[in-house]
Amino acid sequence: MSRIIRKFTTRVPKWRPHVVPVDLETATEEQRTALSETPSNTKISDYVLVLAHDPEALSARTPLFNGIMYDAGGLSRAERELGAVAASFVNRCIYCAAVHASRYNQITKDETVMQKVFLDGEAADLDARSKAILEFGVRLSQCPPQVGQADIEALRALGLDDQEILDLTLATALFGWANRLMHTLGEPVDDR
């Protein structure tokens, strides 16, 4: 019996769906086309096979996901991952937080930032720029979202330009989307 993971971790768990995934063997042409691109170019997972129930949505969603996280210019890759983790922390999506915290760690070669975020959340003791990004991500992830002009000014004061602020917004909001799929349609389990 596999154990459900309820605490934040950078060890990526297995995702167990609550909805029956589409069977790749019997998938329609439209479903196969939608599955031809995957988020972050990973293998075809149970997660994308669950989303393949709605190929029309998936075929727009996957290139949007990859564009927001990987397109050139604007905000750094690591800081996009930090926005993703901020949303996943608020929404308590353990799976998304694990995947994107570990990507952050791979890029920055520094595990202390994510350790602090998982321990203290928005109160984490980070450098000023990372702290501002984290706080912005947390405020944007509330319901209703809490971003006002003062939040934009706070990011600008720390040197983020408007392109970076837009990219941070897209990455954070994208995870408001991803968390609402991953954390409701399935759950993270330890498959050891």
Partner: peptide, 29 residues
């Protein structure tokens, strides 16, 4: 099963759109 995914996708997308709109308005101002 497909309709559960359609509903989850709708709710998740609209929440994304609402957040981007929140920031675009604040940036515009």
């Amino acid at each position: 099963e497909g309709d559960i995914v359609r509903l989850a996708g709708l709710v998740a997308f609209v929440n994304y759109q609402l957040r981007v709109a929140n920031v675009l308005r604040a940036m515009g101002k």
